[in-house]
Design a binder for these strands. Structure first.
Lengths: 145, 145
DNA sequence: TATTGTTATACTCTATAACTATA
DNA sequence: TATAGTTATAGAGTATAACAATA
């Protein structure tokens, strides 16, 4: 009665993925939350602005696959912390170009280093081939590319 | 100024893991939520009782690494839906042995088939070796084993 | 009418402290 | 005192509808 199931939890991908995602996210959360009081979406928005330069909210939605309501709130929070400034575009006043302030850049530069270091410690456990397989598998498993 | 960062988002493990976990979880959520109105923890508790037989709440906490407050609420919900019954143990009345009802077993049997099918479609995209690498990598990346 | 962005709201998930009852 | 389990509460994450302003 107990053993008619085809697999153990350790073979169920959603379970394994969730555990790994939770562990690694919580660990890195210490950096952006502990040092700067940011939430996850705020860190992602900061990342995009730091990594790809000034963008509109719409650009961030598209590039980061984050819903506009989340981006809207994250930008507000980053603005309140003086990490981001918005500049209305004259050509279309529905848009505003978002850019990092000096403090925003400093936070980005700091966090990106933490991210790189942390990512390196995660990937150090794997051979180059394993890391590549893992990376490509995770991308395949994500719905929207 | 934009390109001093060491990597793209597509190389940052917490990001990749979260995306894959979210996609796959949401997809399977359709089964346990859509058909039975269960939440994730309820599905996990049902899984443990169906897969491993009668257990106490404490057993489930240990085996599934779920906190006792979550298990408590999940069991209550499953009880309310008549999927689980509890039987107080005479030797120690703090414990109760939890078991699936007939309806609980039926739900388990149904969901476990969905889970197996879904897992198979996920893993079909990989070679046996890739699947193995992926599985072991995810376990390595999860903090508590 | 369509698009950009905001606000309101609700649901899910997680985490922790405080509590009850039993041992 | 310690353990099993419950309740309360808050924080974080997600999802959707309704709205305002602009085009």
């Amino acid at each position: 009665m107990q053993d008619n199931s085809p697999f153990h939890l350790q073979d169920f991908m959603p379970y394994l993925l969730n555990r790994a995602a939770e562990s690694t996210s919580l660990e890195f959360q210490k950096a952006y939350k502990g040092k700067y009081g940011m939430l996850r979406t705020e860190w992602r928005v900061l990342f995009h602005l730091g990594r790809y330069g000034s963008l509109t909210a719409k650009d961030i939605c598209t590039r980061a696959s984050i819903h506009k309501t989340k981006v809207s709130r994250a930008v507000s929070a980053l603005e309140a912390r003086r990490f981001v400034v918005r500049e209305e575009m004259e050509t279309d006043r529905r848009h505003a170009l978002l850019s990092l302030t000096k403090a925003g850049h400093a936070a980005f530069d700091d966090l990106i280093k933490d991210a790189a270091r942390y990512n390196a410690t995660l990937m150090d456990r794997f051979t180059a081939e394993e890391a590549d397989t893992l990376r490509r598998a995770l991308i395949k498993l994500s719905t929207e590319n």
